[in-house]
Design a protein around this nucleic acid. Sequence first.
DNA 1: ATTTTATACATAATTTTCTTATGTATATAG
DNA 2: CTATATACATAAGAAAATTATGTATAAAAT
Lengths: 117, 117
Amino acid sequence: MYFYSMKKSSLYKGCLEPILLRLLKDHGRMYGYQMTQMVKDITKGELTITEGALYPLLHKLEEQGIVETETEMNGNRMRKYYSLTKAGKKQTSIAMEEMKAFMQSLEYIVNPKIALG
Amino acid sequence: MYFYSMKKSSLYKGCLEPILLRLLKDHGRMYGYQMTQMVKDITKGELTITEGALYPLLHKLEEQGIVETETEMNGNRMRKYYSLTKAGKKQTSIAMEEMKAFMQSLEYIVNPKIALG
DNA sequence: ATTTTATACATAATTTTCTTATGTATATAG
DNA sequence: CTATATACATAAGAAAATTATGTATAAAAT
């Protein structure tokens, strides 16, 4: 029997990309590990981005020209900083509109108070 | 060149199960097609549940004892009605708590107004 | 009349997007 | 000297969709 809490199913499947875009939009220039920590902090530990999801996605965004990178050394440790390109900023605007609509849709379903029509 | 709007990426990947559970919690007894139409209506066309996602998921929920079914004829057309089992209602409560936390997390990220600490 | 759209189910093949596991390497805390 | 934290990367596998296809009836449009 298992009394400790079950692993939460990842509801945020599909939302990771817009989440990262939003972080970069708000904070300008971030490295990967920093993103994982910031999401954990902001969501009070609710959302945890795994490295296996993060890094491949960042590489994809770079390939697509959504983000660009600069590698810097912090002491002896590497940090790869990501920032939005011009195309990336445009893409982020679209993604944020979609997110807003999506979140509104979830509200309609989970909190069906509002009379329609 | 494509001027007509691109297909929206499905942000709700991972949210479909709690969405269905919520519908069944609110409406008691529904058939599959009805669920797709109701979600489309409630979200003003924003969320579209595909049949390839819906039916296998409903079958999985039935296997797991979350929902139970009754098949009825409407004229000459079959309708398979789904409703929550007792275990399903319990599971739905948990899923709704998780959804609330998830939506709050999205708010924190997309709308970072609130001062923390 | 005949084609399209809507209703109503189902499933297989494929793709997307994660998790889990593993690996490298440095720094700090116990 | 061992565990934890920082910081990257990638491969194997699982989960959860999309897309395509199929069956069948009813209604609407051409």
